[in-house]
Design a protein around this nucleic acid. Structure first.
Lengths: 194, 194
DNA sequence: CGGATCCTTGAGTGGGCTCAAAATTAGTGG
DNA sequence: CCACTAATTTTGAGCCCACTCAAGGATCCG
């Protein structure tokens, strides 16, 4: 007998799911970040989705029942495990919230396709940081001007489809324009991203 | 009084939906191709999804009830209009098929993010043509070796995130390798895509 | 304090872009 | 059926954004 919703912890780089695995539960992120990514045979990596506190990971498991891409913790991570059975049997808001999250993921992915296909390096990085700031502001509701982004520049590179070296140079530009700050090794983002 | 499912026709370049519109029905493509795209203020265009015969367009309207991006016919188009009400009230396979289509769209988009972010021009074009060939083979079931792709090179460019000029040069390479043929102005794709 | 990871910087290269013009093809109306 | 126009495909030359390779500093962690 398991509790209907249990808390689980993952360390950075640890996998929440591996490709092909069948899933009978999803996660709701409570603290920390996770990502869905694809690793090509020659080592190239592309991150296809980021999961922040408050996000469901991954909503479409409700329908497909299996993971198609690996999901990994990008920081220390605390999640609540939600059995799919508990959602199917109780047809309340649960299903609705999940399907809503799915649509949101879909729209976010469409936006990223546009960025990756048609935007420059500076535009992509700015857009990513802007989006992250907004998503953080929605879920945790404090109104600090700066927020920490716990990603390495390699991680950012694998989201925006660039090289770590070039991400570094872009960030230096954004720093001079005051959109971003570096404290120790963690990146701080400020509100306002046109 | 309207028939419960009516057939509609669109000409090339004609819009099936415009951004912000509220939708009370979706389409099932019967013949021809359509796409969802994004047009940036400076004229850059990126196509985010292609809809082929047999596809639902767009499944997530079922949940969101509105179009976020414009949808346009890329060729002459015949579709069947399916009122959302008829799906909501009859909770049979209809909902299931639509949600399945939604998951498929989601997985397809994830794959495209990987391509746009991390793959070369030749890889992207080959992958697009291979995917299109497979999707065409699933829905229409004849086993011709070659199939027509009714897209201009500009359209292809706006899918794979390249310039029309460069798409042209890539296609010339693929033609020399026999993966592709050009009859008149229409591109013919052959099976086999490693 | 040693080792690992990450950030930074420099110099040189290249894949894909831009600009521009010519060659094909499709579409239209007479 | 044919001229005429518009839309595509093709080709060439030159450029630039982002990449590669490589080394040197920071920062973190045990």
């Amino acid at each position: 007998m398991e509790a209907p919703s249990s808390v689980r912890h993952f360390r950075r780089q640890q996998h929440l799911a591996r490709p092909g695995e069948t899933r009978d539960s999803i996660y709701r992120v409570e603290e920390g970040w996770a990502c869905r990514y694809c690793l090509l045979p020659d080592g190239r990596r592309q991150i296809a989705a980021l999961y922040l506190p408050g996000d469901y990971c991954e909503p479409h498991w409700l329908l497909s029942g299996r993971a198609d891409l690996p999901v990994m913790a990008m920081t220390g991570l605390r999640v609540r495990e939600v059995p799919l059975a508990s959602i199917h049997t109780r047809p309340g808001d649960g299903v609705k919230r999940l399907l809503g999250a799915m649509v949101q993921t879909l729209e976010r992915q469409s936006k990223w396709i546009v960025s990756l296909g048609r935007k420059t390096a500076v535009e992509r990085v700015s857009e990513l940081l802007g989006e992250l700031f907004e998503r953080l502001r929605e879920n945790e509701r404090s109104s600090d001007e700066f927020r920490p982004i716990q990603l390495t520049q390699r991680d950012i590179a694998d989201v925006v489809g660039l090289t770590p070296v070039h991400v570094n140079r872009v960030l230096q530009g954004l720093r001079q324009r005051g959109l971003v700050e570096l404290r120790g090794r963690t990146l701080m983002v400020r509100a306002g991203d046109p």
